[in-house]
Amino acid sequence: MKGKVLAAVSDAAPGLISGDDGRRYRFDASTVRSGPLRAGQEVDFDISGDMAVEIYALTNQYGLSPEVGRGWINFYFSSTGRVSRRQYWLYGVLVTFVVSVVLGWIPVVGQILGLAAFWSSIALSFKRCHDVGRSGWWSFLPAIPLVLTVVVSMVEAANHAAMAGTILLAIVTLGSYVWVFVAVYVRRGEPGPNRFGPDPLGLPIA
């Protein structure tokens, strides 16, 4: 049976659970199988007379599943799976930007947050690529002409040559950024599951 903890075990009295059947059941610490319980936690338990036994916590005291925290960590820092456009722009870009602005000025914390945000941006970009059916490495495609642009510009500057090669590569770089932006970050993902995972539309993050 499932229910909710009304009162935790104390030195003076046993704990109390309100079951889904409308009845209340006492319990003691020896029957809890998943660590100390707090008021407000949802639990699964068996019944022995008027006592709850074999009790397992389904949520923490805030009503959240233990999987929730793990789900958000995976969302921001795992490069596997898929994210929808809405998830990417709202929970990825916007939330990361706001947190960086609010906390980025704090010494040490700002540096750590910057590194975390950098990796998170890569992980989320990979998952956007996955959502449209492409390898995550496609997100680095514009970096190729960008590096070539820098190298060619240095060579042309050293030889006092015309900057025609640099200008051409700069145009190619800009074009590749626009193409990736539209094809990956604006385009709707593939409907239904693909080789990278299930369709993220309609699925909770955690």
Rank of each mutant, 00 (worst) to 15 (best):
Q61T: 04
I205Q: 06
Q61I: 03
S34W: 00
Y88D: 06
L169N: 10
S100G: 10
Q111T: 15
W105Q: 08
D46F: 04
V101K: 06
A39C: 02
A183R: 15
A206P: 15
R187E: 06
G136H: 01
L146A: 15
L115C: 10
R26F: 14
I144T: 10
L141T: 10
T80H: 05
S78H: 09
D199I: 08
V150D: 05
A117Q: 10
I73N: 11
R82L: 07
S84K: 15
T149F: 02
D21N: 14
P107H: 06
S100F: 02
A183D: 14
I17C: 11
N60S: 13
R134F: 08
F196H: 09
S30T: 08
S48N: 07
G197S: 12
L141D: 09
I17A: 02
S34I: 00
G110K: 07
N74K: 14
V109A: 12
A170W: 05
E67F: 11
S121Q: 10
L58W: 00
T96R: 02
L141I: 12
F181G: 11
S176N: 12
A123N: 06
A29C: 01
V108W: 02
I167Q: 09
A206E: 04
T80C: 10
A13R: 05
L113F: 06
N159Y: 01
E54M: 11
F181V: 08
G202M: 05
V152I: 15
Y177H: 11
R85A: 09
F45R: 04
P204V: 06
L64P: 03
L94V: 14
D28C: 09
V186C: 10
S84I: 04
S176R: 06
R70C: 01
G15N: 09
Q61E: 04
F126M: 04
G15A: 15
P204L: 05
V155P: 05
R188E: 14
G40V: 06
K2P: 02
D11H: 13
C129T: 08
E42P: 00
V182S: 07
L124Y: 00
L168I: 15
V186W: 13
F118R: 04
L148I: 01
V109Q: 03
